Amino acid sequence: MAKDFYGELQLGILGGGQLGRMLIQEAINYNVNVHILDPDKNAPCRKLCNRFECGSLSDFETVYNFGKELDMITIEIEKVNVDALEKLEEEGVVVYPQSRIIRLIQDKGLQKQFFKQNDIPTAAFQLMSTKDNLYETVIGLPYIQKLRRDGYDGKGVKKISTPDDIATAFTEPSLVEELVDFEKEIAVIVARNDRGDISTFPLVEMEFNPQANLVEFLISPSTLALEIQVQAEEIAKKIAGDLQIVGLLAVEMFLTRDGQILVNELAPRPHNSGHHTIEGNLTSQFAQHLRAIFNLPLGSTAARTHAVMINLLGEPKYEGLAKYDGVEEVLGREGVFVHLYGKKYTKPFRKMGHVCIVNEDREVAIKNARWVQETLKVKA
């Protein structure tokens, strides 16, 4: 960028949640001035940024007016007004990831078509305009129905097992995809700067909460066969190169029982599958995202040690002012790092924080993480 950003650059982040909060924590090291737009007046970023504006991320005028005096805009959530970002780009504001990429990723149908056009392995799929089309799908039962837009954190996904299930299916435009018989859910985070440099973080293995369909447990680095790890990282690099993205891209994948890797979804920003990198890797995903959008050399992604990340989700029967039981107890154990997101209120399965557990012995790290899961609870 023409402007020397050390202390001068005005960076806007669309979204003031935990990802924005952790980006701010890293941006402080560069003396960058951070401006936040979020619809929640109590957003986690509200007291940490140089300027906080409470407003809609989907309203054209709000996003445009927020960004027009800034040098650069990035995102921590994809559900933003892309038309406003396109206008800002035309007027010289740098937007990373680029607005065209955000527009593509906002629509899971366009994502799938991109995979098909660029020979990215993915599950067989079919686009659906109405619920009635579900009776005519060429994808055999059972299958997964996904809303094309606005699905996140396990929402907007249904399993259709029998014709009777179609009665309760989504009525909005959606896609159906083949139900994948997978062995593991895996992810690779890849970064690309404007010079075209591309770097991946080591492959991670994930476990999901069956009730909320949220990542609950993540292990890094993976112990899967080396060829699987290399193949997954090459797929992520290809996607980043094909998109010509600037910034971070999380690539979520399935490893099938017969050893295939199928890409599930993309997220063009820091991601839940990279939180362990703060303690577990030489460069965190948040530092890497800033390096990429500032067009700096990308940092080393090498693992420091074995790291396990668990999400702190609101306990099922509690809603109200958040109360954290067991924090002191878990902090008394070596290698446990607690990150609370500053959310005032909890509700069932809301992401309230995460914990990273590190140890030179992988099995000890996993054992300690299971203990943390049982000990640290978010109640009200």
Rank of each mutant, 00 (worst) to 15 (best):
T200M: 01
G156K: 06
K159P: 06
V372H: 04
D181G: 03
E26V: 12
P121E: 02
V364Q: 07
T301Y: 00
P202H: 03
D164C: 06
S58T: 15
E234C: 11
K68S: 14
N65F: 04
S58Q: 15
A302V: 13
L262F: 02
E328G: 12
L88I: 03
Q106Y: 00
V364N: 10
D40E: 14
E216I: 13
Q285R: 04
K112W: 01
V190Y: 09
M22W: 05
L340A: 03
V215F: 12
A369H: 12
I310W: 07
L37K: 13
Q373F: 12
F217T: 01
N81C: 10
Q231E: 15
T223E: 13
E319I: 05
E178T: 09
R291H: 03
C54T: 10
N81A: 06
L255H: 02
D150F: 15
M253E: 11
I245M: 01
T256W: 02
G55N: 13
P121G: 10
K377D: 05
I144W: 13
A236H: 06
N133T: 06
F5I: 11
F286A: 13
T162M: 08
I120P: 09
D4G: 15
L255C: 02
E76A: 09
E78G: 04
F217R: 02
S273I: 09
E334A: 14
T171Y: 07
S273F: 02
N359G: 07
I36K: 11
V157H: 01
S273N: 06
E234S: 12
A169S: 15
V308S: 01
G55Q: 03
P221K: 11
L127A: 14
Y345W: 11
H354P: 05
A240Y: 05
T346S: 04
P210R: 03
H271G: 04
I144P: 06
V355N: 12
N118R: 06
I144S: 09
